[in-house]
Lab assay of single mutants.
Amino acid sequence: MSIQHFRVALIPFFAAFCLPVFAHPETLVKVKDAEDQLGARVGYIELDLNSGKILESFRPEERFPMMSTFKVLLCGAVLSRVDAGQEQLGRRIHYSQNDLVEYSPVTEKHLTDGMTVRELCSAAITMSDNTAANLLLTTIGGPKELTAFLHNMGDHVTRLDRWEPELNEAIPNDERDTTMPAAMATTLRKLLTGELLTLASRQQLIDWMEADKVAGPLLRSALPAGWFIADKSGAGERGSRGIIAALGPDGKPSRIVVIYTTGSQATMDERNRQIAEIGASLIKHW
């Protein structure tokens, strides 16, 4: 067993022997301040990774656009098919120029040779490549099948209805392509620590998230040296922004954090800054 596999296998073990965790309302004060600064709703939840206990939450059962955070769930569904012998990570998928959609920095470079399922998941999570996500959605049967996968996990809230990039439209009061912070946090925890996926697939999923290259201005910008984070960000229309993450000190994750916002007129930089400040408060009061 590799060191990384050992780390993920012992996530519940280490967490069980940690000192009790206590909620700190100071972080919620910052979440509410972010709402004021952005002029928009902000949803927040913080779960203990081992027990699933909610440590703090704000608007945990209000719907927010998922945006690209759905790509972690998508690759979880792909990995479940791999575990069941219905898919192979090494299978190569070929596609054409007509398949390319807006923001496809990886797939646009491989029109000639195609990409493997493993490479597509890596591109979808680490670079948020939209064509990679659409190609992977095709392998599982489309958005409705991802929703069905989530329902089978016990998540009857999260739903995907459309493809990239239309799913980022974020129309107010439109339930399409949305989740709730509580539902997303619980589902992410199941994917990373539950028995739904094999140990190898859980490790692969967290490795992809740990290698995320496009979430630097968010929670990662607030992390002290030595902290662990595996995350996936999302951005959408109407001032929408979000991030889902597993993080913790001492090089291992111990909490799940989900943050979503929508309806702001603020710039992307300002949305990023507010999420980073929430992260800084979380870490300060850990």
Rank of each mutant, 00 (worst) to 15 (best):
T262E: 04
W163Y: 12
L111G: 12
F149D: 11
T116D: 11
A183N: 15
L282C: 12
L111N: 13
T131N: 06
E277K: 07
R63W: 10
V29G: 13
G154V: 04
I283K: 15
E87W: 04
E102H: 05
A185H: 00
M153K: 05
T198A: 13
V257L: 10
T186G: 12
A124K: 01
A276Y: 07
G76I: 09
T178S: 04
L192C: 06
I45A: 12
L223S: 09
L38I: 06
I244C: 10
A235L: 06
E61R: 12
M209C: 13
D48H: 07
E119M: 15
S104Q: 02
T158V: 09
A246L: 12
T261H: 10
L197E: 14
Y103F: 06
G248K: 02
F64Y: 13
M115D: 02
I259E: 00
R41E: 11
S96Y: 07
K109Y: 12
T112L: 14
Q37A: 04
G248N: 14
A124W: 01
T267D: 09
A77C: 05
I93V: 12
A222F: 08
G239P: 01
S104M: 03
R59V: 02
L146V: 05
L137E: 11
R189W: 14
L167I: 06
L111W: 11
V82C: 13
E102V: 07
M184G: 02
G279E: 03
L218V: 05
I229E: 02
P143Q: 14
K71V: 00
A123W: 03
T178R: 02
Q265R: 08
D207T: 06
A211T: 14
A215Q: 08
H285W: 08
M153D: 04
A280Y: 08
L146R: 00
E210Q: 13
M67Y: 02
T198D: 09
G76S: 07
A211C: 14
L89E: 05
G251D: 09
H110Q: 07
C75E: 01
V257D: 00
Q86S: 12
N98C: 05
T178I: 05
Q265C: 10
V258Q: 01
T158K: 00
P249K: 13
A211L: 15
S221E: 07
G263Q: 07
V82I: 12
R81F: 10
L167Q: 05
E237M: 12
L199H: 08
R271L: 12
S96T: 09
P65Q: 03
L89G: 06
P224H: 12
V29I: 06
G39R: 09
I283Q: 07
D212G: 10
K232D: 00
V29Q: 15
T179M: 01
N173T: 07
P249Y: 09
G263L: 07
N272A: 10
A266L: 05
E175Y: 11
G142I: 01
D250E: 03
V106S: 12
I275R: 01
A222G: 13
A132S: 11
S254P: 07
F228M: 12
D269N: 15
S104N: 02
A40T: 04
E26S: 13
D83I: 07
K284L: 11
R176S: 07
T112Y: 15
M67R: 01
T158C: 03
V29T: 15
D174M: 06
L150Y: 13
L28W: 04
I243T: 14
M268F: 07
H285F: 06
G234Q: 00
I93M: 07
N134E: 02
E102Q: 05
N130Y: 01
M209N: 01
Q204Y: 04
L247Y: 04
D207N: 10
D250V: 05
S201T: 11
R202C: 07
D129R: 01
K71W: 00
N130S: 12
V258S: 06
L282T: 06
L223C: 03
A77L: 05
H110N: 06
H156L: 13
L73M: 08
P217G: 10
E108Y: 15
G154C: 04
L135Y: 08
P224G: 10
P181W: 01
S57C: 09
M66A: 13
I275V: 15
G154M: 14
S80N: 15
L223W: 06
M127T: 12
L73C: 12
I140T: 10
A276T: 06
Y260S: 04
G194W: 14
A280I: 05
D48F: 03
N50M: 15
D33E: 08
A77Y: 08
M67H: 13
R238I: 14
N168D: 07
A124R: 01
I244F: 12
A133E: 00
G154S: 08
V78W: 03
I275D: 00
T262V: 06
V214E: 14
S240P: 02
V31I: 08
M268R: 12
M184C: 03
E210D: 13
T27Y: 02
T139P: 12
E102D: 06
A245L: 10
A276K: 14
N272M: 03
E166L: 12
L137N: 12
L188G: 08
P217M: 15
A215F: 15
L191K: 02
D161Q: 05
M67C: 04
E46R: 08
V29C: 13
G141H: 10
E195A: 14
G52E: 12
L223V: 15
S233E: 01
A133Y: 01
G52Y: 14
I244A: 10
M268L: 11
S104E: 02
Q88E: 14
M180N: 15
P172W: 10
A124V: 13
T187F: 15
T131A: 07
W227L: 00
I243R: 01
H156N: 14
A170P: 13
L55K: 14
W208K: 01
L120C: 07
T116W: 02
F228E: 08
L160A: 12
T27F: 12
D33I: 06
N173R: 08
E164H: 00
A183P: 08
M153R: 04
D174H: 07
R92D: 15
V29Y: 13
D129M: 00
F149V: 15
L146C: 12
N152R: 10
A266R: 05
E108W: 12
K284A: 13
P25V: 12
C75T: 09
Y103P: 12
S240L: 02
L49R: 10
E210R: 10
I283C: 13
G279V: 06
A133I: 01
E26F: 15
V157I: 13
N98M: 05
L135Q: 14
S57Y: 08
E169L: 07
P253Q: 10
T138P: 14
L205W: 05
M184D: 01
K109A: 11
A183E: 06
H24S: 11
D48E: 05
F149R: 15
Q86L: 04
L196Q: 07
A133S: 10
Q274M: 09
M153P: 01
G154N: 12
A123D: 03
R241P: 01
L55S: 13
A200D: 10
L49F: 09
P60N: 13
I54V: 15
G114I: 02
R189Q: 15
T158A: 08
L282Y: 04
E164I: 01
T131C: 07
V72E: 02
K144D: 05
S240C: 12
A182E: 08
L247F: 05
E166D: 10
T261M: 12
K190H: 08
T267Q: 12
A276H: 13
T126C: 07
A225M: 15
V117R: 02
Q88M: 11
A84I: 14
V106L: 12
A246M: 12
I256H: 00
F70E: 02
M115S: 04
E277N: 13
P165E: 06
G85W: 10
G239S: 08
G251T: 10
E87H: 04
V214W: 14
P181G: 09
S233K: 00
D161R: 03
A200S: 09
D36A: 15
I259P: 00
S264L: 08
E56C: 04
R91D: 12
E119Q: 14
R189C: 11
L197N: 03
V258Y: 01
V42I: 04
M180G: 14
Y103C: 09
P105H: 04
A183Q: 13
